[in-house]
């Protein structure tokens, strides 16, 4: 039973405790026992390295066009011109840009959406849910009705709307902007449009996490160990942070890991319909859109970004399942 051991871990977390360490060690041990998980972890680790040092892996720049070589097939070696000697490992797109190098730089987009999206939704969602669940019923009620109402808004539609709004913001003249606005827009331009994608996804994705956390808090706050903490005079902040949080965090981590593929996919879709990362910055989604346009004549254009996107989502899905099983063997059959 993970709940009882996590409970114990929570109430002893004040002193350096062995139990709380062994819970995580145990989880890690169980995770790494599965060869599939090891493969997923290695693959994702590779992606992270690629995302941090793309220039080390890329063989060309991501926006270097070369018109004689447009739609070059995979493996084409350029014989003349500026790029003489360059090999298009995965072919070239309609502007003659190297697909392999674009894929490498696109990794940066997907991986940062995966981790920053998860971090934003986790931080906002868990603290919101924790606060709502532990507050007086009236405040809790108001806070959760707000979540319910935003929830009725179809997620993808809200994200699209926000994204249109934010990209329109980015196109305004600098003189018309306030200081904060300009700061945000600069941040967005420097990240090739990525920042606003985070913002749009982050603004919506915390809702699930808030609901989950609040449900967990409602379950635990009636229990004796919380009452005991109240009786000895622990402050609300301490009860929330030291007693409730360690108990609710397990299922939240699991849910967040399982939500990561949806963040990756949302970004890819936004870029697919041209609302995501701004060109020439490559994203797997916009590369899929390019390839989709040339499906009849040059199907390899779509092959590699589609493969990269699917494999990455697959790895996160496997990992999410494995984390869930490892944290709570009781749920193994879900």
């Amino acid at each position: 039973m993970v709940s009882s051991s996590a409970q114990a871990a929570g109430s002893r977390a004040a002193a350096p405790s062995r139990r709380s360490r062994t819970l995580w060690q145990d989880t890690l041990r169980r995770l790494l026992r599965d060869p599939v998980v090891v493969i997923c972890v290695l693959y994702l680790a590779l992606l992270i390295v690629v995302a941090i040092f793309p220039s080390f892996f890329a063989t060309a720049s991501y926006d270097q066009t070369s018109f004689p070589n447009n739609f070059a097939a995979p493996g084409t070696v350029v014989s003349e011109g500026k790029l003489a000697g360059h090999t298009y490992w995965m072919g070239a797109d309609k502007l003659g840009r190297d697909i392999y190098s674009r894929l490498v730089y696109g990794t940066r987009v997907s991986i940062s959406v995966a981790f920053l999206g998860a971090a934003v939704s986790f931080l906002i969602g868990v603290s919101y849910g924790l606060f709502a669940g532990y507050s007086r019923p009236r405040i809790d009620n108001i806070m959760m009705r707000i979540v319910d109402i935003i929830y009725a808004y179809p997620t993808l539609i809200l994200i699209i709307l926000l994204q249109v709004f934010l990209t329109a913001l980015a196109q305004k003249e600098p003189e018309q902007m306030g200081t904060i606005e300009r700061m945000l827009v600069d941040l967005d331009r420097n990240s090739g449009g990525l920042f606003f994608v985070f913002l749009a996804i982050g603004a919506v994705s915390w809702l699930n996490m808030a609901r989950l956390t609040r449900g967990q808090v409602m379950h635990y706050k009636q229990q004796e160990f919380v009452q005991a903490a109240q009786v000895v005079g622990a402050s609300d902040r301490r009860i929330m942070g030291r007693h409730l949080l360690p108990n609710v965090i397990g299922p939240c981590i699991v849910a967040e890991t399982l939500a990561i593929p949806s963040y990756i996919y949302t970004e890819a879709f936004l870029s697919f319909i041209g609302l995501g990362v701004q060109p020439p910055m490559p994203s797997w989604g916009s590369m899929i859109a390019d390839g989709y346009g040339a499906l009849r004549t040059a199907p390899w254009l779509i092959l590699f970004p589609a493969l990269a996107l699917s494999l990455t989502m697959l790895a996160f899905n496997f990992l999410g399942d494995a984390v869930r099983d490892a944290l709570d063997p009781k749920l193994r059959d879900r």
């Binding site: 890819a268 879709f269 899929i288 859109a289 390839g291 989709y292 499906l295 199907p299 779509i302 589609a306």
Partner: peptide
């Protein structure tokens, strides 16, 4: 099933189209 949730429509759609239509 895991494969099914990991291959998103923007991949699945073009793939099916390429195979069955083209």
């Amino acid at each position: 099933a895991i494969l099914g949730v990991s291959v998103p429509p923007i991949v699945m759609g073009p793939l099916l189209m390429w195979l069955f239509a083209l």
